[in-house]
């Protein structure tokens, strides 16, 4: 405890509180709240029932109204706490007519009381509406969207790793005419964003018949200049003597690539793999343009379509947003080191 207090009250070094110490505490304190708060609020809200979501002001935790089985009634009745002239007691609602509810005492169901609804509050307990998570998968197309997202992410990442590493190998380990030109070309297009070539790209993807196909989402994104650049920089540090020694032993160039260079490039490949997974999972604009039929939607496009409906069903939408967030949060928790090191080292995202 004393160590915790010492930690919380430690200062920049001097004896008295510097204004920068105060500022640091304020900044970091509000950061925890502002950065984590919204995601936490999303998760809490995603477990609430539609009725609870429309409450204002909202409660922090999800609650469920309690019901009770009363003798003589075939369905469970909702419980209320009633406070009026006769005192405070817990009653079950039989039916409601306008502002008056007919209620019974669950212990003594014979006698029906009339209670003004202004005098009662529902009895409830913390409870989670798991249906928010199950229904979209069972009744709507979210299972398909999830499968599509996983397919796009997985396949695109594999192709990216394979093609980028092959190109990076050729561009780092062989001397040939035009090598410099290709490298410059790749660097020059490093920052050309998709949003600049939307129209002609759409016509090309349409020309090869890949509109409304997941391959139309995958192919334009896999030849990332960033990936080639990153892997090439890494491969340049592998000594050529290793390759020469392998050639002496009659290894083919292909074997040199995958038996020697690829394993040595594993750390860079891992960084690229992580980034590729996050990029492809999160892609929005291009899938939005290519995919216009529900059965090929990815999660991101599906979520957007769902959020754009006239009557937004927030309870489902919030739950599916949490689902969409999960893989990225897992990547973040387990692989944060690689990502932060990758960004600090290369400035790519």
């Amino acid at each position: 405890m004393s160590r915790a207090v010492a930690f919380l009250t430690r200062r920049k070094g001097g004896e008295r509180w510097d204004w920068t110490d105060v500022f640091t505490f304020v900044w970091l304190g509000s950061a925890v709240f502002i950065m984590f708060g919204p995601a936490l609020w999303l998760v809490l809200s995603s477990f609430k029932s539609p009725a609870q979501l429309s409450e204002f002001p909202p409660t922090l935790l999800p609650y469920e109204a309690q019901t009770v089985v009363v003798e003589g009634f075939d369905r469970p009745l909702p419980l209320f706490t009633v406070t009026d002239e006769a005192g405070t007691r817990t009653l079950a609602e039989v039916r409601r007519v306008g502002t008056v509810a007919q209620m019974v005492d669950p212990e003594n169901p014979g006698e029906v009381e009339r209670v003004n609804i202004a005098n009662r509050t529902p009895v409830r307990e913390v409870g989670f509406s798991w249906g928010n998570y199950l229904d979209p998968f069972l009744r709507f197309d979210f299972l398909t969207y999830t499968k599509n997202s996983i397919f796009v992410t997985g396949v695109a990442t594999l192709i990216t790793l394979l093609t980028n590493s092959m190109a990076a190998f050729a561009l780092s380990k062989y001397e040939f005419r035009g090598r410099g030109f290709v490298v410059v070309l790749i660097i020059a297009t490093l920052m050309i964003p998709l949003s600049v070539i939307l129209v002609p790209l759409y016509s090309i993807v349409s020309g090869v018949g890949l509109i409304n196909s997941l391959w139309g989402v995958i192919l334009p994104t896999v030849a990332t200049p960033t990936g080639v650049f990153l892997l090439r920089q890494y491969m340049l540090t592998i000594p050529d003597e290793l390759l020469e020694a392998a050639r002496m032993d009659h290894a083919s160039e292909w074997q040199i690539y995958w038996r020697i260079v690829l394993p040595l490039t594993a750390p860079a490949l891992a960084v690229l793999a992580i980034f590729s997974v996050v990029w492809r999972w999160n892609d929005f604009l291009w899938p939005l343009i290519v995919l216009s039929r529900q059965e090929v939607y990815t999660l991101q496009v599906g979520l957007n379509a769902y959020a754009g409906e006239l009557n937004v069903q927030w309870h489902y939408l919030l739950a599916m947003t949490v689902i969409t967030m999960i893989p990225v949060v897992l990547v973040f928790i387990f692989l944060q080191r690689f990502i932060t090191a990758g960004i600090a080292g290369t400035g790519l995202k």
Partner: peptide, 14 residues
Amino acid sequence: FFPVLLSPVVVGLI
């Protein structure tokens, strides 16, 4: 760093 990896759609909806 946490929000950096979130998808823009998720960020928008949150």
